[in-house]
Every structure is written in C-alpha cells, then in structure tokens.
Design a protein around this nucleic acid. Structure first.
Lengths: 228, 228
DNA sequence: CAATAAAATTACGGTAGCTGCACCAATACC
DNA sequence: GGTATTGGTGCAGCTACCGTAATTTTATTG
C-alpha cells in the first residue's frame, strides 16, 4: 500500500476502489459533515459524539474506529502526512532554500485533502470560531517534527554536505524545522482569521519574505567576536 | 512532614504571604513533583490523576481545583511572565535587533524565577518526549504571545515607525514573536538535554546566529515583485 | 449459487478525565 | 473570642475513549 498512497482516501471514492471503499468514504464523509453542521449550530462544546453518531446513523464505537478522537471528526480524517512523492521531491531538491522547500512540502500535504469546497468552507468557518481546533491542527503537524528533522538531514546528505560536521547539521536541521513550524503557524493563523485575500501560495510567499525580513536585520553592534 | 518537607520551591515561597498561601504553594508543588516523578517512572499515559493524588496526599477533587486539567500538573502552574522593568527595557530599546532583544527579555524572565532547576529539567525532558504535552505547552504560551505582540508593537511605535503601515507592523510583530518562540524552544531543548557546554548567553547567541543562517539563504529565483 | 474468508459494525462493559454542588474544616480579620 | 473567607473533600454524574466478542456485510472462490 505504499506505492499509490491512495490507501487513506482523501475521499476519492468514486471510480475503481470497489463498494467497500465507497461505503467507507460515505460514512466518513457523513460523520464529518454531521460533526461540522452540528458544531456550527450548537457550538463545539455542546456537541457530543453521540449526537454526531445519531445524525450520521452509526454507532458511537464506529465513530472512534474512524477518527480515534472527537477532534478528528472536525479536522478531517487524515492527518497531514506528506506522500512518498513529496518526500522525494523535497529530499532531492537542488536549491539552497531548504526552509522554503520544507514549508512548501507541508503546505502541499495540507492541500492534498478533500476537494469538497463546501465542506472546506464550513470547516474553515468553524476553526475561525473555535481556536481550540486551530491548535489541534497545529499539534497534528507537530507530531511530524522528528520525522521532518530526519528528512532535512537526508537532504543535507544528498546535497553532499561534509560528514564531519554532522552535529552542526543536526542543529541546523532542527532549527529549520522549528522555523518552518513558526511560518506554518503564522500562515494558518492569518489564513483562518480571514485577514488574507490572496491565494495560499501567495500567503506562503508573504510569510517566508516576512520571516527573512525579521531575522535579516543584523545587530548594529556586533557583541563579541562574530562568526564562529 | 507537616510543614518543612515541601517548602514550596518553584513558586514564590513568600515568607510573608501568610500561612494559607504557603500551604497552597506547598500542595501545588507536591502535586507537580509527584506528577513528573511518576511520569518519568511509569510513562505519561499510565499515570492517572488518582496516582498523583495518592502520592501527594490530596483528594482527586482538589487536584482539579488546582490544575483544571491533568496536563496542567505536568506543565506547571505559572508560565513565566516578564516583569515591568523588563518590559520597559525592551520597549525602549534603541537597537535594530528586535528579535535578539525579545529573546533576551524572555530568557531573563525565565532566569528570574529560578525555581528548582532539577524540576525544570525533568519537566523539560518530559515535555519534549510527550508530544501531547508539547502542544499543550505551546497553546499555553500562545496566550502569552498576544501580550508579547503588543510589546513589540509598542517598541515599533516608540522607535518612531510611520503610522501608515500599521497593518504591516502587526504582521511583522507577530512573526517576530513566533520566531522568538522557536528560538527559545531550540535553546531550551539544547540546554536541558545537556548538549551545550557554554553559558546561557552563549547559547542564545548561538541560537540567534543559527536562525539567521537558516533563513538567510535567499531564494534562488525571486518570484514576482518583492518588497510589498 | 453456496461456502468461506475478511472486514466493518455493533453492543456491552469498563476506565479515566472532569465538573457542579453541598458540606465541613482551617484560616484570616476584627 | 466571633465571624466571614477560603480551601479541602465526598458524591453523583457526564463524556471521551478503549478492549472484546458477537453479528452483519462484502469479497472471493469453486
């Protein structure tokens, strides 16, 4: 199941996957829709899992078979995980802009999800209203951090960095991931608070430019001896 | 062990605050210590609130009177807040290195309340080890971040930045705070994992240099018109 | 079409986090 | 001392979540 990457459906039920997969996708979709509608109507906290299940006509146990947590139904079934293709594209990237490429990969993984624009719209409305969900989504990304550090290290190696300063490379990789997390946090907050009118790509470009401006200003008076 | 055994370290033992406050601080400290030791011994998930309460000799109901959540006992009662003096020093800082100064202020605030460093270290290791705690801590810090954004904006104003591009300034302030948070996270991880031999000041300088190196690489092909 | 394997769904029971409430004990204030 | 606050506790209850085994649904094979 590693090849096509479709095993965890971003909800493309239609064509060839058989009746089983289609029903599965239908149930998942029904649960997500029920969850979001109910939350928009009654508020997130007052919606119980039982309510969602009743609306979607499944047993509560089934709910947790799909989403292991209540939050999951609101954020969407599949946590953002870059596909193998995206992995390779990043690791073998030739450019010097590791930070930009990493952010791009994460954003692409986020964008991979369901194309249902209406559901996305409602979900965005919900997240805008309940900040708890925003932090929830961020923590789903944070789960990947260790993995991302490994990816950055791989990229360093394939770019032929010397093996001698491996320790420095680990530090740098970790920092790249941390800063990328900041950029994602900034972008998502801006995105979900509705203060941005452009496309997601433009938003990312804006964020990357901003993070460079913010860090770029060198201190006017170099403290001790600069550059070690 | 009626009184002295737990003389409220990590909080303001406040010799003058009265018996009530002292007992309170003692109980809170006992709960936090019990929580962290138990988690280091048995793992976070297998530690129940009841276990912590039994070790700290309080009722489970009391536990939730102190920390509204299980997580709270592990993260500790009070996030570090800079003093008024530190506020002013930062806001009226004249240099261009806003990021460096902000990181400096946060670090100073951390150093101010020097509660039992051993407890801090154990807590830090736990937090980095358990992603659930990590995200929990980040969302707690997020509340503090709003305040920091305001501080950065104040500094911009006292530095006489034009009022016209207030929106841009808000964006920039927010990004400064986010990046500062990343720098702090990197520094603390490096510090408490024992991988750094120098002084805290040197560590901060190292982190700031690193974050600049990481973001410094300009994109090879500037897209459209930069410089919004 | 029938038999069988595999997978999804379900009911049931239980644990743990968390809360409101009312009561009692300790402390602060006068 | 007496009285008002405040902190600690037991109880009853709700909800998220999980292990397990039974039941139904789908896929497969002859």
């Amino acid at each position: 199941m590693s090849s096509t990457g479709l095993s965890a459906p971003g909800l493309s039920p239609a064509a060839d996957e058989g009746l089983r997969a289609r029903k599965r996708a239908a149930t998942q979709s029904a649960l997500e829709r029920a969850a979001i509608s109910l939350a928009l109507e009654h508020g997130y906290d007052s919606v119980t899992v039982d309510m969602i299940c009743e609306a979607a006509m499944v047993s509560p146990r089934t709910f947790f078979n799909y989403f292991g947590t209540k939050e999951g139904a609101f954020l969407g079934g599949t946590p953002p995980a870059p596909t193998d293709a995206e992995h390779r594209a990043f690791v073998h990237g030739t450019g010097r802009d590791v930070l930009g490429d990493l952010v791009g990969m994460i954003a692409a993984a986020l964008a991979d999800q369901s194309p249902d624009t209406d559901l996305l719209r409602k979900r965005r409305m919900l997240i805008e209203r309940i900040p708890e969900l925003l932090t929830g989504e961020m923590s789903r990304i944070a789960e990947l951090e260790e993995h991302l550090v490994q990816l950055v290290l791989e990229r360093f190696h394939t770019q032929g960095h010397a093996e001698s300063d491996t320790l420095d490379q680990q530090d740098e990789a970790r920092m790249v991931v941390f800063v990328a997390a900041s950029v994602m946090r900034y972008s998502m907050q801006k995105w979900f608070s509705g203060g941005f009118t452009g496309t997601p790509a433009e938003l990312l470009h804006h964020s990357l430019t901003l993070v460079r401006r913010v860090t770029g200003a060198a201190a006017p008076a170099p403290r001790s001896s600069p550059r070690g």
